[in-house]
Amino acid sequence: MSPILIAILVLLSLAVVFGLILGYAAVQFKVEGNPIVDQIDELLPQTQCGQCGHPGCRPYAEAIANGEAINKCPPGGQSTIDALADLLDVEAVPLDAEHGEESVKTVAYIREDECIGCTKCIQACPVDAILGAAKQMHTVIVSECTGCDLCVEPCPVDCIDMLPIETTLNNWKWTPPIPGVQLIATDSGRRLDKVLSEEETAS
């Protein structure tokens, strides 16, 4: 047998073996769905507010996986955009103002003596955070409220307020220290540039 034939046979048999292994692996370790969607969904704030134009966070995650812009989530704000940019390895862009602006975290509050018990807000709440029954007063389970605002619109008597979350001892945060004054001139390049440019204009 010629060495060429042997080489061809060996390579062929190798190809068959690896093909079988790959084929088996493709069946055995098949991944259901797109795993990137889960990772994106993980990063979204899950307010389910629909401000991005999608009916919930997961649909937006799917849209992002299909190439939609990552700056459409006002509740997540810049930090979410940064995290998404990091995950997807794309440029972090500022929040698209068209979909709303980043604001303080709020929580819905029902002025209970004005509530007529129409259950409209209950139907609107995406996370079942409103408790009540027909013709009975409703109330918001504060710990479950995501502050998505979706209950405000359907209320026929406008008795729902979005109140900023109150700072208590438990959620109070230290403020970041004020960055110190740069006393060493050479340490701040910008200032040096400024000085140089000033000198140039003077000359």
Binding site: P45, Q46, R58, P126, V127, D128, N171, K173, T175, P177
Partner: peptide, 26 residues
């Protein structure tokens, strides 16, 4: 400051997970 931020982020993450669960259940 950093500890606070991390704790707040974790709390938010927990809340987001909870919200996701509730949303999916709904």
């Amino acid at each position: 400051f950093a500890k606070n931020e991390i704790r707040a982020e974790e709390a938010e993450q927990r809340k987001a997970d909870q919200a996701r669960l509730r949303f999916e259940a709904r």
